[in-house]
Write a protein that binds this DNA or RNA. Structure first.
Length: 243
DNA sequence: GTGAGTCGATAGCCTTTCAA
DNA sequence: TTGAAAGGCTATCGACTCAC
């Protein structure tokens, strides 16, 4: 399943990141522009001065910036990595509606952004009257063919997982976490125990409680993003990548 | 039906508050 | 005084609510 970008992309060179939502980049015509960065994650492996990055122009006078970062080169320049944290939800919305994810094929798409138990969940699915709450996590960090989440300590992410565990234990509905890897050079997903051990522990407890752990890869291109195959989520991994 | 406004989400930095 | 914890702020988007 392929989802094209809605806008033309402009090649640029990353210069700096003044704050987590803003970057400065130099376009091919020499103009230096300020762009919004949709992914507020750390991204220290990706956003390195001199690296190629692609922007889209946004004609919206209400915005403070007229440019948004869309994707950049991976560390080894072999693949592109999406920087748009909104894109996975659009892609997964379409994939769920079209039943493109094998593990979730039996579920019907009900709605997105479903408020339940004091939180808002990315998707509500249903199979034969049984509901499933699905939380989507965007993954950009990878090393040696393994994707890691998160790329920075995430108390909110941990609370999300803990809430899913509680809901799963109550038994009223099923729950799942879906990691969407926004790059095509990985073969599995692991919790980043070396970055956020608390999150990794919470994820393990969630899996033990029955929260389904799913992952899909994507092939990020300059024209758009292709939904890739499902990937294994490897828990019980005590150490991070070998340096 | 449409437009305006509100809310929640994202994660790191900085400031403030509070306890030891 | 120092360290930890809590909360606000940042820019943008999409969903939702409400008024017209």
């Amino acid at each position: 399943m392929f989802m094209p970008y809605r806008d033309r992309l402009y090649k640029a060179t990353f210069i700096e990141r003044p704050n987590r939502f803003i970057i400065r980049a130099r376009k091919e015509d020499g103009e230096t522009v300020t762009a919004h960065l949709p992914d507020p994650g750390r991204l220290i492996e990706l956003l390195i001065p001199g690296r190629e990055i692609w922007l889209r122009y946004v004609d919206n006078p209400k915005r403070k910036t007229q440019w948004s970062a869309v994707l950049c080169e991976s560390e080894d320049a072999r693949v592109y990595v999406s920087l748009d944290t909104m894109f996975p939800n659009r892609l997964i919305t379409q994939a769920l509606k079209e039943k493109r994810i094998e593990s979730l094929k039996k579920y019907n798409y009900i709605r997105a952004e479903y408020p339940f138990a004091g939180a808002r969940w990315d998707f509500l699915l249903e199979n034969k009257g049984r509901s499933l709450l699905l939380e989507v996590k965007s993954v950009t960090l990878a090393e040696n063919g393994i994707a890691y989440f998160p790329d920075a300590v995430t108390a909110r992410g941990r609370k999300h997982v803990e809430a899913l565990t509680t809901i799963q234990n109550e038994g009223n509905c099923d729950t799942a976490v879906l990691f969407v890897v926004q790059r095509g050079d990985v073969t599995s997903v692991r919790p980043a125990t070396h970055i956020d051990p608390a999150f990794a522990s919470a994820l393990q407890k969630a899996a033990d409680a029955g929260v389904a752990m799913l992952a899909v890869t994507t092939d990020v291109r300059l024209e758009g993003v292709e939904l890739g195959q499902e990937l294994p989520v490897q828990l019980n991994i005590q150490k991070g990548p070998i340096k």
